[in-house]
Design a binder for these strands. Structure first.
Lengths: 115, 115
DNA sequence: TCGAGTGTTCTAATTATCTCGAACTATACT
DNA sequence: AGTATAGTTCGAGATAATTAGAACACTCGA
């Protein structure tokens, strides 16, 4: 996957906000295509328990995330859009909610980019 | 290497600016500890030739980077500081100049973080 | 169809980032 | 010492990011 440098900076920017990074990790860990939770290695989140989404999906993500992240719906919506815009996640509507998944290609591209 | 989530967002923030990312790549590709240029995979830089630093080191980096990146010395200095602050690079003074290297541990931590 | 729940869009305020230029400090060479 | 070269710090302006709240639109169940 070959991208412009500006794409990479855009991706890094999407992950540069701690709240947004938390959202991304929630999706990444709980909503893998394999259905298996993929633990993201080597980090701790001080003062925070696991996000309240624990049913293996991120249905009703926005509202639930509002509760556990102390951010408004509009802010969470904006963060989701940023992540989508960077190509990191894809969301498809399922009724009232969304089903989101991480684009593994992009993750792999970042890792390749970093050597 | 276990870090707080905030450390990761800090690292991503450091790489989120395209100019700074360009600086980082210049160091990464030309200043590896092995002494071997490490090509960073999977990206193109539209409209830009290779950075003018082509002698295998980044001596006189600031001034040269000013020339080829069209940024002032103070701005470049600031960007270097950001990269150091995030732990991505380490710079030691050598006379009038600096010798910089990328902290491979941090790069590896990012890759592990991304699964 | 009405109400509750969910996500979006717009607006606005606060805060942070990027950048430069000027003045400054440090080093090297003569 | 004097000069040239290198990088730093400070101040300030412009631009961008973060966030909330209000008003809106969509979906589902009764």
């Amino acid at each position: 996957m070959v991208m412009e440098l500006s794409n990479y900076s855009k991706i890094f920017k999407a992950l540069s906000n701690e709240q947004r990074l938390k959202i991304f990790l929630t999706i990444y860990r709980q909503c893998q295509t394999s259905g298996v939770a993929k633990p993201t290695a080597g980090f701790t989140v001080s003062g925070d328990g696991p996000c309240c989404l624990g049913d293996g999906s991120i249905d009703r993500a926005f509202t639930k995330m509002c509760d556990c992240m102390d951010l408004s719906r509009s802010t969470i919506s904006h963060h989701f859009k940023e992540l989508q815009n960077a190509g990191l996640i894809t969301c498809v509507r399922e009724g009232q909610n969304f089903r989101c998944r991480v684009n593994q290609d992009v993750i792999d591209a970042i890792k390749a980019f970093l050597g």
